[in-house]
Design a protein around this nucleic acid. Structure first.
Lengths: 204, 204
DNA sequence: CGTATCCTCAAACGATCGTTTGATTCCCTG
DNA sequence: CAGGGAATCAAACGATCGTTTGAGGATACG
């Protein structure tokens, strides 16, 4: 094992944190490499360009998130009866977990930023690395909500996504109180989200 | 009337569009002033700095949005019976209208960006210029949803805001079809949002 | 030992950024 | 008409950006 993998990982980790904190444009390679403890030129050497680095930051976490979501969905599909809450849990909890696990605590804020940046190439990238997961969940939602038209279903899933993104990226007014542990706060967040989203999806 | 008002307005309008399209950091004053047809130095002359310009862009539209929302809320408060859907309509429709009226069509995307930027001074500014409206709506929601604890209510309003922001800023998969007029699409968006949010707020 | 390959490093490149300057033009007022 | 503050303008300032360069270090294999 050479040390390049370590350097790449250090860059990815520092990039994720800095992108989340400052945004893609504002985060400079000099801040980034300084925080990672690597040379400035290392980014262009290992990733080719800053843009490619951004993509890799996304890819690393999106692959995690997708795998966990699909794993959770597969898990509940073995049950005799699946509820809407189960599917929502498989959709929501991996995302919430990701925002606290594996050093990738700030990824969801990065993701929310990416949505807001509204960059076409980035949207295309997200669509390519995200679409198949959404399709599987959409199919499951459709099965559990047979009364909804396809258009109505798309709308509601979209709104659920918005609520989820908003809650996870820490935009909202709700902040964790100091006397509540992170694990408990995450669990409360998941419960609020699932309850709200389930009711919204079931709306008459 | 001197021409400075016109210049300021031209800058504000161009800034709103450019901020929405490219973000606060990426939008340069040179692009901005070029699009507005004014001199580069005009921004610093009339606004002091780029940061102050950002604040003014927000203030101009937030004042509009706040006035319309409070006006709509006051309107329905005169009715003998107020429904949850009425209050949600007063909250949602002015925002949707703003994203198509008065040349400020891109403001909500700017607002979503501002949330994502996560800048503390900007958050403070938003809180100062936005908080009193949210408090009024929160009080009305609390009246109509007496079974909810205060914490639960805050959570759900937060999630409604997330869904609204997401839908309005055009992140989602739902795009207006070419055979649907903008007015109709806006109305459909409002109906979907209100139905979804009302059910979510009423969740058991 | 020699050499080939991968990696790291300090330094510099050109471009672009927000801001400032000082001169010039415009327009109102006395 | 003359004077003066407000507004506009081209130009330049220093800073910072992403990227490139070329030399040097580290490691593995003949």
């Amino acid at each position: 094992m050479n040390s390049s993998a370590s350097t790449k990982e250090r860059i990815l980790t520092a990039a994720e944190a800095l992108f989340a904190q400052r945004g893609f444009e504002a985060a400079s390679l000099r801040q980034l490499t300084s925080a990672a403890g690597v040379n400035l030129a290392a980014v262009n050497y290992h990733f080719g360009s800053k843009d490619h680095l951004v993509e890799q930051v996304f890819k690393r976490r999106l692959d995690q998130l997708n795998a966990r979501r699909l794993g959770a969905l597969k898990q509940i599909s073995t049950q005799p009866e699946t509820t809407l809450e189960d599917v929502l849990s498989a959709f929501i909890r991996p995302a919430l977990d990701l925002s606290h696990d594996g050093g990738g605590g700030l990824f969801m804020r990065v993701l929310a930023r990416a949505f807001a940046e509204h960059d076409d190439s980035l949207r295309k990238f997200l669509s390519e690395n995200y679409g198949h997961v959404m399709r599987q969940f959409t199919a499951e939602f459709a099965r559990l909500l047979p009364n909804l038209s396809k258009e109505e279903l798309y709308w509601r899933i979209d709104l659920v996504t918005g609520a989820l993104t908003h809650a996870m990226s820490g935009f909202g007014i709700i902040q964790r109180k100091s006397d509540v542990s992170e694990v408990i706060h995450r669990e409360q967040t998941a419960e609020h989200l699932i309850r709200f989203a389930a009711a919204g999806l079931r709306a008459p």
